[in-house]
Amino acid sequence: MQELLGRLQTLDPQAGAELRIVAHFDALVASHVGPEALLRAAVTLAGCPAGYADRRTVIIIDGAGHRRTDGRPVGLRRSVPGRPGAEVWLERSGEPQPTDEMIIERLALAVSVTEQRRLGVQQPLLILIDPDASAEDRRVAGAQLRLNGRNDLRMVALTEDDPLPDGVTGASVLVGPDHWRAVLDLDQQHYRVAGLGIRGTVEELPTSWQTAVAARRLAGGLLPVVDAEDLGILTTLADHRTGDDHDAGGRSRHPDHRRLATVIDEVPWAATTVEALILTGSRRSAASVLGVHHATLQARVERLTTLLGYDITAPLGTHRLTVGYLSHRLA
């Protein structure tokens, strides 16, 4: 009945209002709604526009309930727990209201829960790349995705910021503290930046994922897409970082690593120059790739030799630099 009009629009700043805010979002989460409906609830409760943005989507509901997809986070902002890069916000133009903090808090939590639920749909893939998953779970997940019996399967690793090819989706996976995207590459998409894992059967997908992650760590400006099949055993360099020669934080105690890390930190051109030398195998090609004069590169090589304490152009020195640099990147 219309008698309630106004009463519900103007939630007064009392203890009851906060309870109502919590109940409102809880009911929506229980109904499995998406981000837009949650934003609409925030607009209803706050009486001002509200927005959601992640890497690919922007949704803004204005004060009249109309949807926009252009705009950036402004006003009272809150990041969405468990979704790096995702934010919600309230566009309050006048005086902040006492319930604003509560509303943005519950909105962020509700979006987090519903988004994680949505990602949960891709659960089979997460089972398949988990080295600790049971054989039975792996068989069921493989059957769900119709992968059993194939031997050309491989994982592709993308960071949260890498562009996804059109139509490609992936599961969100934690790599260290970061959210990465695990993609099962069935149709050999073209990626702009990616690490490609080794090919194999369903049983080998955990290894494919690990090698894809290693390959992605090595990808950079000079070689944006790295294929683990080209790296072979080099992808395992990352596996040693928790051994005796590393400290509690996973940092290497080996002098080669420490020196290289310091040089890369302090010398602006060091990382790209080392990478160019490793990837091209010759000083002349490295100079060309970097767009610098041969004499400039020669001077850099001599400087690196001094700083690192070994001749990086000698046959063994070249390998020492390659292994040192790759394991530095993988750490």
């Binding site: 309630l4 009009l5 629009q9 209803t44």
Partner: peptide, 15 residues
């Protein structure tokens, strides 16, 4: 529900 359209709020169906 009865009177939903009179209650204000920005639910899609209300708008």
């Amino acid at each position: 529900f009865h009177g939903f359209q009179l209650m204000g709020g920005q639910a899609a169906v209300s708008v």
